[in-house]
């Protein structure tokens, strides 16, 4: 078995890399694949919290790479009944504790055993980023429809391309359909035109994402929620299924209809 190693990155922090990793990983596992997610954000580990596996950590990524434990000792199986595993980051070390080659070798090992190896990349473009992208054959960029996040995504795409990761795909996270409709937020087309990469998913801003993260249960478990559904579709697209992107419709209320009538749909943001 040869799995695919996919890095999930963004450049800017706080746009939802870790949430996306947890949800895409869970989504792929729900589709019946054997999946492992690796948190490479050494020193600032989060993925275990989002997945609700914090209490089960014994060994971590640095222990594995330094040979202090066997690979499968550091793998934590997901609480749910899926073939989903996590290798957590070390919290007491830093990004320089591992080398890109070491992570590449580890992922090559894991690819033999798993269908998907997802790497949760730390923010920034320094050592941690270099470690994370070294092992991957594919990349998914997470951005939000904000100029700062898009600027960083643009930079990261350039860096990925120069290190041989061509055709990264894009998730636009935290889209607020109401704001897009009012013209206060960039829409999918604007982002797509600027970054000139394929969009693999649109995730609406949804309170359920936050609630789910706090409870340690990725939001894909709630298929009916807006963001859960979006992440499930992204997982399907990663898996090769051809699902068209859905237009995010604002929840229609009297107020938004009224706004539409009086023509307040002008664009108020600017491209920097």
């Amino acid at each position: 078995m040869t799995g695919r190693t996919i890095v999930i990155t963004s450049g800017k922090g706080g746009v939802g890399k870790t949430t996306a990793t947890a949800n895409i990983g869970t989504g792929l596992a729900m589709r019946g694949h054997k999946v492992i997610v690796i948190d490479t954000d050494i020193g600032l580990r989060n993925l275990d919290v989002i997945m609700g596996l914090e209490n089960r950590i014994v060994y971590d990524l640095v222990n594995v790479i330094e040979g202090k434990c066997k690979m499968n000792q550091a793998m934590i199986r997901d609480k749910h009944d899926y073939e989903l595993y996590l290798i957590p980051a070390a919290q007491t070390r830093d990004k320089n504790s591992i080398e890109p080659e070491q992570l590449r070798d580890l992922c090559a090992e894991l690819e033999k055993e798993f269908d998907y190896v997802l790497i949760d990349c730390p923010a920034g473009i320094e050592q941690g980023f270099k470690n994370a992208i070294a092992a991957a054959q594919e990349a998914i960029i997470v951005t939000t429809p904000e100029v700062s996040a898009i600027r960083d995504a643009d930079r990261v795409i350039g860096l990925l391309e120069s290190s041989g990761l061509h055709r990264p795909r894009l998730i636009i996270n935290r889209i607020s359909p109401e704001m897009v409709k009012r013209g206060d937020m960039m829409d999918q087309k604007d982002v797509e035109n600027l970054l000139a990469v394929e969009v693999i998913g649109l995730v609406p801003a949804d309170e359920n994402t936050v609630v789910a993260a706090n409870r340690g249960i990725p939001v894909v478990h709630d298929r009916k929620s807006a963001s859960g559904g979006a992440f499930l579709r992204i997982a399907a697209r990663v898996d090769g299924e051809d699902i068209p992107l859905m237009d995010l419709e604002p929840k229609s209320g009297i107020f938004s209809k009224f706004r539409g009538l009086v023509g307040m749909n002008g664009r108020a943001y600017s491209h920097a």
Binding site: D152, D154, R155, I157, G158, L159, N193, L194, A196
Partner: peptide, 19 residues
């Protein structure tokens, strides 16, 4: 696409066939 963070200095003309 010539992206953020990329830079070039060329002693002649430069043509970019993208943004």
């Amino acid at each position: 696409t010539f992206r953020s963070g990329e830079s070039v200095h060329h002693p002649g003309d430069v043509v970019v066939l993208a943004d």
